[in-house]
């Protein structure tokens, strides 16, 4: 593992409207753009419900957990760039930008397959015994 190395990607094959309904309860937020395609269309945002931003970030966190199984995330800085919609396949990936004995820093991105980036940012991971 060294600076510049890509992190193994994490793929979520199909973003599900059922999962969006679950996330609406987790977040106590029943914004209709996550629940009702007609509401999405009324706002001119297409014809598929839009995934919650924190759910998109959760896919990235899963990627980081798989890349650093003994590590602990200590910092996340995220820019939300675009929408992920029902039925989309998304891929989370990243690159190591700094590496010390006890800490790694990474750039990350979540991208819709055949589409635009949905979010990007940086993460800091305490490595515990990761590199021993």
């Amino acid at each position: 593992m060294k600076v510049g190395d890509p992190l193994p990607t994490f793929t979520h094959d199909r973003v599900s409207p059922d999962a969006m309904r679950e996330w609406a309860t987790f977040l106590r937020d029943d914004n209709p753009i996550h629940l009702d395609p007609a509401a999405v269309a009324a706002l001119g945002l297409g014809d598929r419900v839009i995934n919650q931003g924190p759910a998109n970030l959760a896919y990235v966190i899963n990627m980081l957990h798989a890349a650093f199984p003994s590590g602990t995330i200590t910092g996340l800085s995220t820019r939300f760039l675009g929408n992920v919609r029902a039925g989309d396949c998304v891929v989370a990936g990243g690159t190591i930008t700094s590496l010390k004995a006890d800490e790694a820093e990474c750039d990350f991105e979540l991208r819709v397959v055949d589409g635009e980036p949905a979010l990007a940012g940086t993460a800091t991971i305490a490595l515990n015994q990761q590199l021993s």
Partner: peptide, 14 residues
């Protein structure tokens, strides 16, 4: 809220 607030960024320090 019906006018569509948008998340643009979030920073967390654990």
């Amino acid at each position: 809220i019906d006018d569509g607030p948008m998340m643009v960024g979030s920073q967390a320090a654990f």
